[in-house]
Amino acid sequence: METKFEIEKLNLYYGSFQALQDIDMNIYSNRITALIGPSGCGKSTFLRTLNRMNDLIRGVTIEGTVKFDGEDIYGNFYDIIKLRKKVGMVFQKPNPFPKTIYENIVYGPKIHGEKNKTVLDNIVERTLKEVAMWEEVKDRLQKPALGLSGGQQQRLCIARCLAVEPEVILMDEPTSALDPVATSKIEGLLEELAEKYTIVIVTHNMQQAGRVSDYTSFFLNGKVIETDKTEVIFSNPANKKTEEYITGRFG
């Protein structure tokens, strides 16, 4: 099994507040890794270190190494643009741009230099099919994306992310703003996507982690308490705190 991310001794501070403490973790290719834990435990912060989205926040300092395909992404000469192209992200709230459906999807390919109309058309069709939306929207590609329902918007955001052909998709509670039907559609999608992509998903919803992931990592107070195969975490966790959380005693 190939390792996609190798994280060693990762520490992250917001000003003087330490949000992540000595994180060591491996994330494997073509697997779905779920990050669980109570809110404020650092799981989203951790997710955002993987594509360096934390760089946007003022006053963040990061120590330790995060290796992507063996290269430290916090190294001095690492190309963040390339990293983000390979490591896509889907956010908690669907965030399509105020453009048409079509323009949303081709935004990524266009900024990476793709100009050929046929190629772009093909990308739109391929990605919308991948997120099982092609039939729903193929006749209104030129309509504003903000007119879609919440679930459709989120799938569009996934399609937009797929359009730049990433290797990894980071998902930050992608279904927390959606209704159950839309949620189950996206969960169904994850399994298919895992054949081609490495997925890291932050979720509040323990059942969701249990249903969709291969690996689960339990975060608490900025530390990783335990990482293991999902069935192990849910049936026979090594740490008492994990067990307490899983069984719903806190969180």
């Binding site: 643009i81 983000r84 105020p98 900024i111 990476h112």
Partner: peptide
Amino acid sequence: PMSYREGSLSLGATKWQMITGVILP
């Protein structure tokens, strides 16, 4: 919204591409 900036950057846009392609419009 901040989410437009995040969405754009997460697709590998440079800051300037983000500004001209998403924010200014």
